[in-house]
Amino acid sequence: MTKRVLVIMGSVRAGRRCPAIAHWVSEVGQERTDLAIEIIDLAEWSLPVDDEPGIPALGLYKQPHSKAWSKKVAQADGFVFVTPQYNWGYPAALKNAIDHCYLEWKGKPLMIITYGGHGGGKCAAQLHQVSEALKMRPVSPMPAITLSNAIIRENAPLDDVTFEAALSLVQDGWTALAESLSSSM
């Protein structure tokens, strides 16, 4: 049976680089695995902050958007978070999406891919800690894609050099995720 992996884009900002990076990450995953990969753009999910009367750990969702998000997350076998590092952390939209569920994440493997002017190691460390609290199974490596100042500040296009520097780590991450999914059968 084919395992389903959601590649979740952690940024919803205008002018973000996340869609291009998430698509590239997904293409690398398709080349390296036989997983069913779906890209999730959080900008397309209306997930208001704290609008559920109960706590997510109980799974008693009342809002239609929470029920839909819960179902989407629950149907996945594993995840890849692709996210920028903002001020040494990760975006609020990603934290909100994570916090909308609880049991739906449990026991599932996660690859964390960050990007930014410093790559995103501090962001990845925070996400790793949160994923462990959710009883997820984060895999190594946690690729960090360093973007040049021109890409960040001058809106220069993403280039092959940027992706080539991270390619082997992203490939290794997909291999680790696929192995983790195989061991959870």
Rank of each mutant, 00 (worst) to 15 (best):
L42Q: 02
E31P: 00
A36D: 14
L47W: 03
E44I: 00
V49P: 00
A14D: 11
L47M: 07
M1I: 01
I40V: 15
I21V: 14
V12G: 09
S11K: 04
L35P: 09
V25S: 04
A36S: 14
V5E: 03
C18L: 06
W45C: 10
I40T: 06
G15D: 08
R16K: 13
M9R: 07
V7W: 01
I21R: 05
L47P: 08
A43K: 15
A14I: 05
V12H: 09
P19T: 01
D41V: 02
E44F: 04
L42T: 01
W45H: 14
S26I: 00
E27Q: 14
A20Y: 09
C18A: 15
L35F: 10
A14H: 11
V7N: 05
H23D: 14
L6N: 03
E31K: 11
E44N: 14
R17D: 03
Q30R: 15
S46W: 14
M9I: 02
S46R: 14
R17H: 14
W45T: 01
P48E: 11
T2W: 00
I37V: 11
S46M: 12
V25A: 08
R32T: 11
G15P: 08
R17W: 09
E44Q: 15
H23N: 07
S11C: 10
G10C: 11
M1F: 01
R32P: 00
D34H: 10
V7H: 01
H23L: 10
C18S: 15
T33Q: 06
V49H: 13
A43L: 12
V49K: 06
V49F: 15
R13V: 06
V28R: 12
S26T: 11
V5S: 05
L47C: 08
V5G: 04
I40D: 01
R4G: 04
A14K: 13
C18N: 14
R4F: 07
E44A: 14
V7R: 04
I39Y: 03
M9T: 06
E44Y: 03
W45F: 12
G29L: 04
H23V: 10
I39T: 12
I39K: 00
G29S: 09
W45A: 06
W24R: 05
D41I: 02
H23T: 12
Q30F: 00
P48C: 09
C18W: 05
T2M: 11
